[in-house]
Simulated assay, not measured.
Amino acid sequence: MSTHRPPTLAPAGQPSWRRRRLDPDHSLGLRLTLAATAAFLVLVPFALLTLLVLGAWAPLHRLDTAVTHALHGYALDHPAWVTLMRIWTEVFAPMPLRAVALLLVIWLLRRGARRLALWATTTMVVGGLFSPLLKLLVGRDRPELLDPVARAAGYSFPSGHALNATLAAGVLLLVFLPFAGRGAARVALWVAALLLTVVTGLSRVALGVHFTSDVLGGWLLGVAVLAATTAAFTSWRAHTGLRPVRPTRDGVAPEVERHPGSA
C-alpha cells in the first residue's frame, strides 16, 4: 500500500517566493523588490500626470496657464531676471550636461570603474531617449505668449531640460557621494544636485517655453529612470559579492574612492 505526500507549493524547509523576496537575509531579492517598488511608485504619478495632460484636464490647464502668465509678466518687467534664466538654461541644457556625463564616464574608465561607467552611460542614454519619444506621443504645444522673452522648438511635454538635469544631477551625486565624507561636503553635494535640478526646470517656466506640468513630468520621469537603473546596478553589486549599499547615503559604488577597479 503506497502513501501519497500531499502537494506543496515549495520544498519542505524552503521559504516561499514571497518570503524570499522580503527576507532581509536574501538581500538581492529584497533590494530588487524594494527598488522596483520605488520605481513603480514614481512612475504612477508620472503616468497620471501624462493622462491629465493628454486629456486636457481643465484644472491642470488653468494652473499651468496662471503660473505661465504670472511669471511672464514678471519677466517682462525684469530684463535682468530674463538674462539670468537664459544663461542658466543654456549652461545646463541637455547637451552640455551630456558632455559633462561623458567626461565623467571617461574619468571612471581611466580609474578602471567599468561597471560604474556603464551605469552612468545607461542612465543618461535611456533617460535621454524618453524625452523626444514622449514629446512625439503626447504632442503638447508649448505656451503661446503675445510677447515671448524666449523661444524653443518642438513639443512641450515632458521638459527635456528638467529630465536631463535630474538625470545628470542624480548620476553625479551618486558617483561622488563616497568622496564627500560625512560633513559639510556631503551637504554641499546634495544642495548642488537639488539646485541643478530645480532651477533648471524652473528656468524653463520662467522663460515661458514650458508649462509647470511639463517640468514636473521631466522631474518625475528622471527620478523613475534613476531609481530603475540604480536598482539594477545595486542588485548587480550584490550578485557579484560586493557589500550592500544605500545609494542615497553611500553612493552606488563606495569602493570607487579607494579601489576603483572593483566598481
Rank of each mutant, 00 (worst) to 15 (best):
T248A: 14
A99T: 14
A117S: 14
F176M: 12
L49D: 00
D64F: 01
L32K: 08
L118V: 15
G160E: 02
L41E: 00
R98T: 12
R249Y: 13
R86K: 14
A231S: 14
R115C: 02
L97N: 08
A227S: 12
D214Q: 05
V205M: 07
Y74A: 10
H72I: 04
W17R: 11
V225L: 03
V138A: 06
L9N: 05
A188E: 01
A35N: 06
R98Y: 04
A231K: 14
A168Q: 10
H4G: 04
F130R: 02
V175W: 13
R20F: 05
E255D: 15
A58I: 12
E90P: 03
P148E: 08
P7W: 02
L9K: 09
A12E: 09
G154T: 01
L194F: 12
A185K: 13
L173K: 11
G201V: 05
L28Q: 12
T3Y: 12
V256G: 11
P178W: 12
E255T: 14
P59W: 08
D141V: 11
A58D: 10
P244G: 11
L167R: 10
T240I: 00
A232K: 15
V100A: 15
P6S: 02
L189V: 15
L34G: 07
G13S: 00
S156H: 08
G127N: 09
V82I: 01
L220D: 09
A120P: 03
L133R: 12
G261L: 06
L134W: 00
S203C: 08
S213D: 02
D25M: 10
L22M: 07
A35P: 07
L242W: 15
T200Q: 08
W88N: 06
A188Y: 03
G128F: 01
F179C: 12
T234Q: 12
P6F: 00
V53W: 03
T123Q: 11
P45A: 05
V138M: 05
H4Y: 07
Q14N: 04
A228K: 13
A66L: 06
G29S: 04
H61E: 11
D214H: 02
G218T: 07
V256P: 10
V171Q: 10
Q14A: 07
A193G: 05
